[in-house]
Nucleic acid binder design. Sequence first.
DNA 1: AACAGGGGCAACCGCCCTAGC
DNA 2: CGCTAGGGCGGTTGCCCCTGT
Length: 266
Amino acid sequence: MGRSPCCEKTHTNKGAWTKEEDQRLISYIRAHGEGCWRSLPKAAGLLRCGKSCRLRWINYLRPDLKRGNFTNEEDELIIKLHSLLGNKWSLIAGRLPGRTDNEIKNYWNTHIKRKLLSRGLNPYTNRPMGESFSPSLNSSPQVISTTPEPEILAFSLPNNSTTTTNRKPVDSVEEANSRDTSKDEQIYPEINLDLSISLPFQSEPLSENSGKSKKKTAITSQLFTTAICLCCHLGFQSNESCTCQRIPSSNFLRYYRPMDSDLSLY
DNA sequence: AACAGGGGCAACCGCCCTAGC
DNA sequence: CGCTAGGGCGGTTGCCCCTGT
């Protein structure tokens, strides 16, 4: 017994979106906001699957999207992020304002992969072909703090780390993605890349009846002493790829991406 | 001018995760 | 605690356009 389909396949359009469909979707979301994608097509008068509407909006119709060619800085950032995160396109896109995961994924597959190969680099490791490699990033982000913003990626600074692990050759993305990264050496030794994503800020203590909240609080208490955004670590703080702002804190420094009005849609 | 091949990218598919009941 | 619906994500497909022959 399979999962029920997300929509009536027989009565939905497929393929390229028309201008009229785009306009309907934009108008509807402007009027009612995002959410409930399954019922949106009917409400908006679209003969489309809800998922299709969501994808169309997120990837092409959102007002905050940055269209056009990728800059060299974006290229380099993507390369570095990919070497650290693997095919976590949404995470990578999160560090590139105005870019979508789909766009970055396509760009990676069509441009960057080739670019790295032409440099004699393994596209999955960003290291010379044949050289051993292991990224340091844990695949599962940890919740480390609560902040006023919906999204924070924090990376600990070197903490007198004694991280020493054995490298293992990685020549495929499958291998790279499935590796036990906890044992891996870092690509960028100066960076301890524990990727962390926070929950929205709560100035009041977290509700006591929330078991999950307690768990998150516990994790927070295990914070490293210093955290910094990946863009900053990679040297992109001063350019457009990094929109972080520094928040002084008694225990550590936090960098966050402000949530502007447009991004609030995402 | 016509055709073939390849590249680029929008869109779809299917699996996974999670909140809500 | 299990089930389900909804949403998110990464991988893949297929169409369109460009370029070379």
